[in-house]
């Protein structure tokens, strides 16, 4: 029992015991493979010319690096300590939190024009925070692209190429007629539902993030059912880039303008409309659409990159 558990822990035995151990067992066990690679790396790193070159670079770089790291650590600590000293004492009543919450609940509908208080909060009072979140999603997409994307300089080996070609064309689920028929009915409904959530964000729960997630899920379902070739017809890397850039640029520009002109984002220059209608809430609807576009592109881009290493067809 213990031996088997240890084997599972070190990766000698696959998790799916009984299914894969007939097929996928490597020739060398995992721990041995680790030892061999580590020995090879050490041997490569300890050649004299490499050591000399590394030492030359490192001696110059190291002093600068140490000084800068030390200074930035101390400054970060000081800033954090100063911020903590501004907080109210433990156990004391915090008037600011009560004020903010009561302001949101009581005057939220009047000031933002959104029936859904959460939507009014994240896209009007705290729109700057949401801007940061959208940029975090965009940055995550860029990082996954740097790690997983296949371009000219990053060609695969023969075996890997053969593997992907076989797996992606022969054993795709898109050869299944049942799935194609059902998805032809379902996928338009899902996309329509996502658009409903996206446009109705100021009146009912939902909004940019959940609507974008539903849109992305619909796209993933489409590409599973009909293959990546059909999805590549309308969603290429260029389209993804343009949509994301336009959405983020519009968001930054609109909110930046509002921050500079209206102090705290309450002057919209767009009429708020009657609460409960689709065109209400001033800037909330366009900002919702922008956030939804970014989230949908990010979700489908993640799926596409993890599945085959590129967004769109071309390498």
């Amino acid at each position: 029992m213990k031996k088997r558990f240890l084997a599972w822990l070190y990766g000698d035995q696959d998790v799916m015991d009984g299914i894969l151990d007939n097929f996928n067992k490597p020739d060398v066990s995992h721990s041995e493979l680790k030892k061999i690679t580590r020995a090879a790396e050490e041997e490569y790193d300890h050649r004299p010319e490499v050591l000399e070159a590394i030492g030359r670079d490192r001696a110059r770089f190291r002093t600068i690096y140490l000084v800068i790291a030390f200074i930035s650590c101390i400054m970060l600590t000081l800033v954090l300590l100063y911020t903590v000293s501004l907080l109210p004492e433990y156990g004391a009543e915090n008037p600011r939190a009560v004020e903010v919450v009561s302001r949101y609940v009581e005057d939220g509908l009047e000031e933002t024009g959104a029936v859904n208080i959460v939507s009014g909060m994240i896209l009007d009072y705290r729109a700057f925070d949401t801007l940061g979140e959208s940029h975090v999603l965009f940055t995550a997409l860029i990082c996954v692209m740097i790690l997983l994307r296949i371009d000219r300089k990053n060609q695969r080996s023969d075996y890997e190429d053969y593997y992907t070609v076989r797996t992606d064309t022969y054993f795709d689920l898109s050869t299944d007629p049942v799935l194609r028929l059902v998805c032809a009915v379902i996928v338009p409904c899902i996309l329509l539902y996502g658009i409903y959530i996206l446009l109705n964000g100021q009146n009912s729960p939902g909004g940019g993030f959940s609507g974008g997630a539903v849109l992305g899920a619909g796209m993933i379902l489409f590409s599973v059912a009909f293959g990546f070739d059909k999805a590549d017809r309308f969603f290429t890397l260029k389209v993804s880039n343009i949509v994301t850039f336009v959405s983020l640029g519009f968001y930054s520009f609109a909110k930046g303008y509002v921050f500079f002109m209206g102090a705290n984002g309450l002057e919209n220059h767009i009429p708020k409309g009657t609460p409960g209608a689709i065109f209400s809430g001033g800037m909330i609807l366009p900002l919702d659409i922008a956030v939804g576009c970014v989230v949908g592109c990010t979700m489908f881009g993640f799926y596409s990159l993890f599945r085959r290493g590129s967004i769109g067809g071309q390498i």
């Binding site: 299914i19 097929f23 797996t167 022969y170 054993f171 795709d172 689920l173 799935l179 899920a217 993933i220």
Partner: peptide, 17 residues
């Protein structure tokens, strides 16, 4: 969607081997 994508992963891998 969960069942669909898990199915695609497992069918692919084991078929190949």
């Amino acid at each position: 969607l969960t069942v669909l994508i898990l199915a695609s992963v497992y069918i692919r891998r084991l078929n190949l081997t």
